[in-house]
Design a binder for these strands. Structure first.
Lengths: 146, 146
DNA sequence: CTTCATTGCTGGCATATGCCAGTAATATTA
DNA sequence: TAATATTACTGGCATATGCCAGCAATGAAG
C-alpha cells in the first residue's frame, strides 16, 4: 500500500479494524458500524438527523441510508420534531436499547483485546489523534477555508 | 461519537480524510480510493488479484468489485497468468499510467496540506501506527489465533 | 403578506466493501 | 491415475458512503 498516503493508510487500517470488530460483534447480528450508531444515538438523546450526521462526520443522505436497516429491524425510529416540521429526530426503540445493552458486552471484549494488543495508552493517544482529524477545525485548516 | 470506540473513531476519521482527499483529487475525476489503487498496482507490478487484496487488506471479492469502474474506464486490465490459469493479474493500461502520473500532482498537494496541518513527524508516526494495525500480526494478536 | 433564500430531508444513482455460494483449475492423497 | 481437497476468482446480495436533484417547511426581505 502506498505507504506515504495518509488517506490510503487510514482506510486500510479502517478495513482491518472493521473486519475484526465485525467478527467480534457477529454473535449479536450487528455490524460494528451499526453498534456505533446505536451507541451514538443513545448518547445524543434524540438528535436531529442533521446533528447526528455532523457528529459522526457523515453525509446526511448517507446517514439516512445507513439507518434504514436499523429502522427496518426495529432498533431505531425517526420521530418528527414538534417545533420544526422539517426536522426528524432519531431515537432508539425499546428493542434498540436492549440490543445495544446486550451487544455492549461483545464490544467491551473487543475493546479489551484491542487495548491489550496495542497498549492502553497508545490506544488513547490514537483516539485523540483521530478525534483531531475528525474535527471541522482540521477540515478548515486542510482546505484553507475561512 | 462514542469516543472510546477505537473502531468508530477510526472510521469517522476515515470518512473525514476521504472527503477532503476526494475533494483534492476531484479535478482528475478519480476518487482517492481509486488513486490509491492505481498507485498500489503500479508499485506491485502485475500482482495477482489475491496478492493485491492481501496487501491492501481488502476482501478479494470487494477488490474485484472496486476494480470494475477502473476497468470500465480503461485504466486497469486483468490478464490471465501464464502458469496458473486460475490467476488473474492486475495491470495498469497506458491510460492508467498516464492518469496516475497526472493525478499525482493533486495527490502530492493534498499530502503537503495534510502534513502542514498535522505535522510532518506526527503524520509519519500516524502512518506507522496504521501500518501496524493493518498487519496480519495485529489481526492474529487481536483474535488470539495461532 | 408575498417573494425569495435557506434549511432539513428523501430518492436515485454510483462507488466501496464484505459474505456466501458456486465454478474452474491446481495440488494432494489414496 | 482417480478421488479429494485447496485455491483463485465470479456473481449475487447486503450494508456503507457520497453526490446531486428535488420538495416541503421555515426564515428573511420587500
Amino acid at each position: 500500500m502506498t505507504r506515504e498516503c495518509n488517506n490510503s493508510m487510514l482506510r486500510r487500517a479502517s478495513r482491518m479494524l472493521g473486519q475484526v470488530y465485525d467478527d467480534a460483534l457477529a454473535p449479536s447480528g450487528l455490524r460494528a458500524t451499526q453498534f456505533g450508531l446505536l451507541a451514538q444515538i443513545d448518547i445524543m438523546r434524540e438528535p436531529a438527523l442533521r446533528e447526528l450526521a455532523a457528529e459522526i462526520v457523515m453525509d446526511l443522505s448517507a446517514l439516512s441510508h445507513t439507518l434504514k436497516p436499523l429502522i427496518r429491524d426495529g432498533y431505531v425510529a425517526l420521530v418528527p420534531d414538534k417545533n420544526d416540521r422539517r426536522v426528524k429526530r432519531v431515537t432508539l426503540t425499546k428493542a434498540g436499547r436492549k440490543k445495544l445493552e446486550q451487544t455492549s458486552k461483545l464490544w467491551a471484549d473487543a475493546q479489551r483485546r484491542f487495548e491489550k494488543t496495542f497498549g492502553d495508552k497508545r490506544a488513547a493517544d490514537l483516539r485523540a489523534v483521530l478525534e483531531e482529524l475528525s474535527s471541522e477545525d482540521f477540515r478548515r485548516a486542510f482546505t484553507g477555508s475561512p
